[in-house]
Design a protein around this nucleic acid. Structure first.
Lengths: 203, 203
DNA sequence: CTTGAATAGTCATATTCTTGACTATCCAAG
DNA sequence: CTTGGATAGTCAAGAATATGACTATTCAAG
């Protein structure tokens, strides 16, 4: 149950409405925690009942009234407690990797397309992360900022997101190239092509 | 609902019992899909009811009787269908990243310890993946194997796991170093240390 | 000769997450 | 003057996951 802690961590940078929070989760936070708007509204309500966040109503003229939430002292204490407790091992879930695992038994063309699409998505995220990082460190260079900047937490997690997507892109491009080469080498085979194995090569 | 497909993909390499499958998930497959043994038994039962896998009873003398499962033609067709459908975006969940996001507001010492422990875990996984990869490619070098080997799917996903853990390790080590340096620079501060910010520097 | 680890598997409960729909207001483009 | 997108939020139902406990057998260490 760390969604609540992810929400608390996201609210540390200032007051957010549920809607803004949902967008934040879609961007930065999404790189290490994923949640739909519905869950966030529900979690905010629970956190408020428990006194870990507090909301204040903001009546807007041109927009629907919204509620801005901030972390309370109790919320900060809960984050402290969470941060000191043992971390569960991280986990990833990725359809595409499941498909690649089965690559030798399924249609190559569609798989290659999907891997290349994923590379493009990763590239877009890389650009986004680079922009966010530039904005966060302001005039300072990275080393300076990491030594002296306030709030390096979000910067560090963003760096992990950047490296992750770079790894993603590189792997996708390489994988696509390999699958392409292999499917070119056996143009008339369907699933599970009988490529040259060590045994065959010896024969 | 891609657990079923992860199970099918894992069973492509040969018959496995529920127990063996659980261990396979704990190792290789866990890098892109995570599931507890209970889920796997339940999923196998469902897959069998739907005719996507078939099990055969194996009576053992020295061990409890087990059931070995393999993918049926219908299961293969289902995998094909899945592989051609659009992939959901991958997602990661990581307690540790949530904690680092809040790094400027929580106790540094405990966080540094955890980040360094994670680096060690990553290192161990790197070793494991290297061994698995070596074993999979047999006598061939990597390039050769990727061009001509049978079943490159598991090899490719393992490569992604390796790169992921290398990224993890590198980021953890860098993050630990930065947090250490910062907490050394403000030895008597508690949470949210007032480090030199651009504004402060100007003053 | 008892304890603990590994094998092999099951059940029930509770929480969490996803899906899909729904209510509103405002602004801008066509 | 209607449609679509952005803002702001809510509800209900159902699927998927997690937690914890439970039954057995075998082998090896102490």
């Amino acid at each position: 149950m760390a969604l609540r802690h992810a929400v608390l961590a996201a609210l540390l940078d200032g007051e957010l409405s549920g809607y803004q929070l949902a967008k934040a989760f879609d961007l930065g936070v999404a790189n290490f925690w994923h949640a739909l708007p519905q869950q966030l509204y529900a979690e905010l309500a629970k956190l408020e009942r428990e006194g870990l966040v507090a909301g204040r109503q903001v009546v807007q003229e041109t927009r629907p009234t919204k509620r801005l939430f901030h972390v309370t002292d109790a919320g900060l204490a809960e984050l402290e407690r969470f941060a000191s407790a043992a971390s569960k091992p991280s986990f990833v879930r990725d359809d595409l990797l499941v498909k690649v695992q089965a690559a030798d038994h399924v249609d190559a063309a569609s798989l290659i397309t999907q891997v290349e699409e994923r590379a493009a998505v990763a590239e877009a995220k890389i650009d986004l992360f680079r922009r966010i990082l530039r904005k966060m460190r302001g005039g300072l260079n990275e080393e300076e900022f990491l030594r002296t900047g306030r709030r390096v937490g979000p910067y560090l997690t963003c760096l992990r997101g950047l490296a992750f997507e770079e790894g993603n892109r590189d792997w996708c491009l390489r994988t696509a190239a390999i699958l392409r080469e292999r499917s070119a080498a056996t143009p008339r085979e369907g699933a599970a092509p009988a490529l040259a194995s060590p045994e065959v090569a010896r024969a």
